[in-house]
Write a protein that binds this DNA or RNA. Sequence first.
DNA 1: TACTAGTTTCATGGTAGGTT
DNA 2: AACCTACCATGAAACTAGTA
Length: 448
Amino acid sequence: MTEGETITLTKIEPAGALQARNGKKGIIFFWRYSQGTTSQRLPIGPYDPTPGHVNKHTPTAAGYSIAAAIKAAEAMAVQHVTAKAEGSGMGEILQQQKQAKAEAKAKQEAAAAATKAAEVTCGEAWTEYLKEREPHWGKHHLADHIRMAKAGGETAKRGTRGRGVTIAGPLHEFLPMRLRDITPQRIEQWAKKHAGERPTMARLSLRIVRAFLNWCSEHTGYAQAVTGNAAKSKKAREALGPAGVKTDALLREQLPAWFAAVRGLKNQTRAAYLQTMLLTGARPGEVLEIKWDDINTQWRGLTLRDKDESKGGIDGVRTIPLTPYVHHILNRLPRRGPFVFAGKDPENYMSEAHKALASACSAAGVHVTIHGLRRSFTSLTEWLEVPVGVVAQIQGHKPSATAEKHYTVRPLDLLRLHHERIEKWILEQAGVPLPQESGQAIQLVKKA
DNA sequence: TACTAGTTTCATGGTAGGTT
DNA sequence: AACCTACCATGAAACTAGTA
């Protein structure tokens, strides 16, 4: 100790501030430093009153014995003197002490968080994940998440293939598990189990889990429980195999039989629908939703609601040429409500036509799905060497990154030039007679 | 026809790895 | 070093099929 400096060890009764801070009453040791008229104090720590501890020179977890406090005060005094010699003062020590305390606190908190994170279950994290991400997702995407993790076992009357109850989603088995137990090995084991049952559900689930674990690793409270991303396991992906690609499409030589069978369907609304599908290459949903108002006879355009405006579709709408034959068959449909392909309820559009298509296909001896009709449109245009950009625009495909440079939005009349050629060619191949009395198109031809 | 289960397709942003 | 670009991950939205 240097001259003029006294070290005072005082027992301080719980101060209001102290009480308010940790809500506990107690005794705390301070080392008081005084110089001249001013004095300051530095906290040492709480008093541990445990009998037998009084004369111990080291602090316990609970606090300091008197002997330990004295020892600590002496150490602080030395520290102070040294600091002073180096030109720094009390403030510095306070600062250091504060910092050390904050670090210790942070460390303790981190440890506590780690302990808590170690116990957190997938289900807890999943619930928060969905809640947080929901506003950013579309309804289908959210529905997929719910579906993949659902418990199943609910009574259902239909669609359960005889089981009577719904079945659990592939991800449900993970929910009760601890997040930290989701290891690559566990995921691989899961993948192997599902590969034989429902690979596509599992493939989708795997991607969902991967995104989920990524979120966890960036989220306080869960980050400690995940190391790396267990769902990135190559083995798991391999176990599930690659996704199959559907290739069914009508071949040129199948067109006569297909058209004959479809035109012979009892339900003419469905017949018109299926032919429109093939001749426009549009998406099933888009065609089903066509309203009478979407048919523009003046400009011979057909307005379709593009499937997703959020993905850059302009106003979620595109207009394609209304070709003569399509115009003709649509015109012949009864106007029972707002929708061209009206269903039993005239205010709504009909239900899907895959049954009608299947029966026509079996009569024709071909196999094609509804989406296959869209594929057929693309592949049939190859016979005609129509620019790919034109086909893409009619079908409502977004320009691909590579082709983007050369992508130009073509006016309806330019699309019509190609589209009418495509329709004419398909009908010729099919041996379907061109409409004789079909309005605008014919009139214009006559004028010309 | 309405559900439920299962499967595909499409868009887009990021990036590894090559090319200028 | 700057620039490309094929490919992948992720997100989203469908589509197909079986059954009561």
